[in-house]
Design a protein around this nucleic acid. Structure first.
Lengths: 233, 233
DNA sequence: GTAAAATTAGACGCCATTGTCTAAAACGTC
DNA sequence: GACGTTTTAGACAATGGCGTCTAATTTTAC
């Protein structure tokens, strides 16, 4: 029942560095094996082998397989949420060179939140074990994709307010932005592959072009940024 | 080694009706259990129970668990492919009322190919077992989404040739059409849910509106279909 | 009705895995 | 060097699933 989140506080100061390293090693190995084999197919022995740890040590930290699984999911969810927040903070808020800026943002989003290790893990596990652990993945649904589209919706609203975009429904536009960004990567993503940097760049470019053809202002489309940011900022 | 695909031919005529019914019952039950539990988590006993069939009967038809799994996947893939072909044949080839026709087509595509039983099964299984059976799902990749975007690409090309659309890259447009169509359904799809008819309709409407804002001809956007179909037809 | 084929229930051996237990070893602190 | 904690390797029982086998029962064709 100890709090897993406290890194090096409130303990007697005995051997928390070693313990913490073991815990992280176990969590990483378990994420790897759970992701490849699923919950039922993953064996504690394999996790122990990957983590270079005795099986007993795993049972020492996490009482049973299910406890370990829940801890792994929460750990990955926290990392993924932090990364999502970090990427969202780089959303362009000026209207100059909107196509390039949105393209770069789409690349960051896809690379660091959707096509990365944690993103693949969560998507896969949500599909395989989502029905078995509803409350666990309900929170992911709300804090992951839910938060993404909500935040993007607000950010697009800011851009539209500055006159850079002509959007009628911000929520729809946010979801479509994400969907367009993944359009060219869907197949590779489904199979578990990781797109190359060139593929990421091209996919984002195609997505943003279409997105701006649909939602860009005429001045933007012709390549004349209206420079409204200086006025409203 | 008998050919599973021949329904009632080339056998001695003994008891193929009962056998065929059993086979289908087993395949359906196995698809259900494999989809819920994954390959490792599915037990033959549960499949037998769901199929209302003795366990020995399963081993009689399919030598081992893996044989059954492969047969299930191939069966579902065949059904899904037939359905996809059928839906693709309803793609609008006239330019009148393009928005409504494309919307109705998107609804059909999502409802019958992507959000239906078989679509969810294949997507889920591709993610969970795709790495373990590469050749099996490689053919799905090529005949499923691959064939979908290829065919859609050609169909959009035909529409563009008639002057109804202004598309520079047909492949990209096809992938984006599919992606936009799923944009509003992604969350529900990931969790395994089935969208309602209203949700399907609204999602398709949003998708086609944006798609036509990006690729529609100006005349189309203003609601003046150019009536070129009569000339080129 | 009869014979052949298919199906069924149940038991069985086998193996992998889970989770516990124990004694020995390693580690860190004093 | 002593001590407490953690880790380790291995043994252990218990469970459950896979695949086989057999004998009894049902279905089907003729």
């Amino acid at each position: 029942m100890k709090d897993r989140m406290t890194p090096a506080v409130q303990m007697t100061g005995h051997t928390q560095r070693g313990q913490c390293a073991k815990r992280m090693s176990i969590l990483d190995a378990a994420a790897d094996v759970f992701c490849r084999q699923g919950f039922a197919g993953a064996s504690i022995d394999e996790i122990a082998a990957v983590a270079c740890v005795s099986r007993q040590t795993i049972y020492n930290h996490y009482r049973e397989k299910e406890t370990l699984f829940v801890a792994v999911v929460e750990d990955v969810m926290n990392r993924a949420n932090a990364m999502l927040f970090s990427v969202l903070s780089t959303f362009p808020d000026r209207a100059d060179n909107l196509e390039d800026e949105l393209t770069a943002f789409a690349v960051r989003l896809n690379k660091n939140c959707i096509c990365n290790h944690d993103g693949k893990f969560l998507r896969k596990l949500v599909q395989t074990e989502g029905e078995r652990y509803p409350h666990l993945f309900e929170s992911w649904r709300q804090q992951g994709p839910g938060k993404l589209t909500t935040a993007l919706s607000a950010l697009f609203g800011r851009l539209a307010h500055k006159g850079a975009l002509a959007i009628d429904d911000f929520d729809v536009a946010a979801r479509q932005f994400v969907a367009l960004g993944n359009a060219d990567l869907q197949m590779k993503i489904l199979l578990g592959g990781t797109p190359t940097d060139e593929e990421l760049e091209k996919a984002a470019r195609n997505a943003v072009r279409t997105f701006l053809k649909a939602y860009g202002r005429p001045a933007e489309k012709a390549g004349h940024p209206p420079q409204l940011a200086a006025i409203s900022g």
